[in-house]
Structure formats: C-alpha cells, structure tokens
Write a protein that binds this DNA or RNA. Structure first.
Lengths: 168, 168
DNA sequence: TAAATACTTGACTGCTGTAGTCAGGAATTA
DNA sequence: TAATTCCTGACTACAGCAGTCAAGTATTTA
C-alpha cells in the first residue's frame, strides 16, 4: 500500500506553483523546467503529468517565452484528492468493480467478508484527501486531521463507536 | 495507491478463521486447505502468509490430523493494522525514511513542501486500520467511521471532487 | 511403527505496471 | 526568424507482486 510517484509528483508540482507563482496581480506563470529543477523531477516525466492536470482543468498554461503554468483556481479551492485523481492515482482498495450492494461483485459471489472493510478504507482515504486543499499543504496546515482521528481511536478503544460524537 | 493481495488475503483468511473456528469450547482449528478453498486463494501462497502470521503471534497452529489454525487472541483484540503489518503490507506514503522533524529526510534537503501531507495521510490510514478489529469486520461493523468522515466530505463537495464512484 | 494429515521453508518464475526516456511538433514572444 | 516554452505519443527497462514448485518436518491416528 504505497503511494506512487505520479500522485506525489503532481502534488509536489502543484504546491510549487502555488508557492512560486505569487507576485504579480494575475499570478505569475511558472515554467515547468523550473518546477522540475526545484522538485528534482525529470522534465519529460513532469510533462506527462501536466498534460493530465491541464486536461482536468486544474492548471492553465501559456506558451512561449515567459510562459508556464498557473493554477486554474485559488490554492484554497484545489483539493489534493482532485490532483491525485487527475493524474490517475486511484484510491482503490477493493478488488471488485461493482457497487456496494451487489454481493456478486466479489469472487465466487457472496462470501466476501471483507469487502465492506476495504470499501470503508477507500472512503476514509478519499475523504481525507478531499478535505485538504493545496493552501493547507503550503501552509503546513495538515496536522489537525491526523490528531482528530487519533482522538477518535482512543474513544473507540474504550467505549465503542457510540462515544464518537463526544470526541468532536 | 492500491492494496496488494498480501494484506487483502491475510485479512480475508483471518476473518475466515474467526468465523469458521467457532463451535468448540476451545475454538476449533481451521485447516488451511479449507480457508484456501472458501476464499479462493492458492494454497501455497496462503502458506507463505500464514508463516508470517504465526511468527508475529497472531495465529496458533496445530499439526496432525484434525489440526489447523486458530486465532491467538479473541477476534475483538486483533486489529486489522496488525495483520497488515505482519504480512509486510506497509502503509508508507512518504518516500524518505527519516523522522518527522528531520528536514533533511527529503531529497535535496529542506524543500519538501509535501512531506507533512504524506506523513499525515500515513497516520490517518494507520489509525483507521488500528481501530478496527477482526470482530468488527465479521460483524460488518465498519461503517460508522465511514459515515463520520462523510460529514467532512460534505463541506467541500460544493466545489470539489466529482465522480466519487470512480475513486472507489 | 507406519501412514496420513497438515504445517514449514526456500528457491524459482512469469508478468504487470511503474517510472522514466525519446523524438518530434506547435504556439508564442521578441 | 530565432528562441523559448508547452504539447503529444510511442517506446522501454526494471522492480516487485503474485503465484508455483519441491522437498522437508512435526503430529496424530491406528
């Protein structure tokens, strides 16, 4: 269960633009070559990723000298989950492609005890990434979520899920 | 960001034991061949996994006719995170191996904007898996966590992530 | 003791998907 | 026109996963 470089690089690059593109009133375009150098990512590889980011409408591009990339929206309105999804970093914990209620989704049909676990895990990760914006990342404002769930765990260990509301 | 079969199969097998090992006062040993058949997992492959589960003290084995595996502890005291870790399914989102506070951990030293994000993601997943017991899984008692985080998602759903189904 | 059952271990292999390269092209500015 | 930058698709090496195979060891039943 590892993160691959596509998702990681894409977020790194987006954070780089968010950080270095500031200055002008219409925010300055950041050339890809600079991003590649600062983040130590191979330029041709980065080009692949930006092709996808552009198609998904997360960045805008300008060609020619002085050109480069800008964020298509303010950093506070771009969520990590979107970036991951755009470059094809799927959050996929279940093996079957069916809907939750179809028990036939799993191999052999009907005897998959663990489907709901993996499904819940996917949701959990998805929600986490969908709740953190690029702005949060460059502000290093990510810790709160981690500590929140730590509290939940402590509650759950003692008294069970009923006490969760207290924790919030 | 996918789950590989090691972790998935290990949890499936453990859940199978938890479910099928009941009956006798000292819970009945479940032969691996039965698990393999019920869960549609190749027997030799499963043997590899159980070797690790046994070494980590999560299951006990009994040889000879009538032998098999039993859980080393009650299902309510075995957490999914332990199983995943035992079979070598690491939850690793960061690339560098250093501690949180060492900024030199990341490549090039000091310019890794996203380290804390991945670190928080790892924590998040780890806490989730560490809070769900095998008993929760066989009782299908996993949903509460999912619905909790769904509330978080609702906050940014206005602007944000479409195509949830694709992500799952 | 012998046979049956079941666990144990290590080495081996095919293959998929990731990570990265390469080459050429198109738009824009000066 | 020349320089700069983005854009696109095809291609490839390689690691690691998933699974196999073979030979062994321990335990119980008869």
């Amino acid at each position: 269960m590892k993160l691959n470089t596509k998702g990681r690089y894409a977020v790194m690059a987006m954070a780089d633009i968010a950080k270095c593109g500031l200055g002008g009133a219409p925010s300055k375009a950041v050339p890809m070559a600079q991003i590649a150098e600062r983040q130590h990512i191979s330029l041709p590889y980065l080009e692949q990723l930006f092709s996808k980011l552009r198609r998904e409408g997360l960045v805008s591009s300008m060609r020619g000298p002085g050109g480069g990339y800008t964020l298509a929206r303010p950093a506070s309105q771009i969520y990590i989950g979107e970036i991951m999804q755009a470059v094809g970093e799927p959050v996929k914990m279940t093996r079957c492609n069916r809907e939750k209620n179809e028990s036939t989704g799993c191999i052999g049909g009907g005897d998959c005890n663990t489907h709901e676990l993996w499904s819940a895990l996917s949701d959990h990760i998805y929600n986490f990434l969908g709740s953190i914006s690029l702005q949060d990342v460059i502000d290093k404002n990510v810790g709160s979520f981690g500590s929140l769930t730590s509290n939940l765990r402590a509650v759950n260990e003692k008294t069970g899920p009923e006490a969760i509301e207290e924790a919030i």
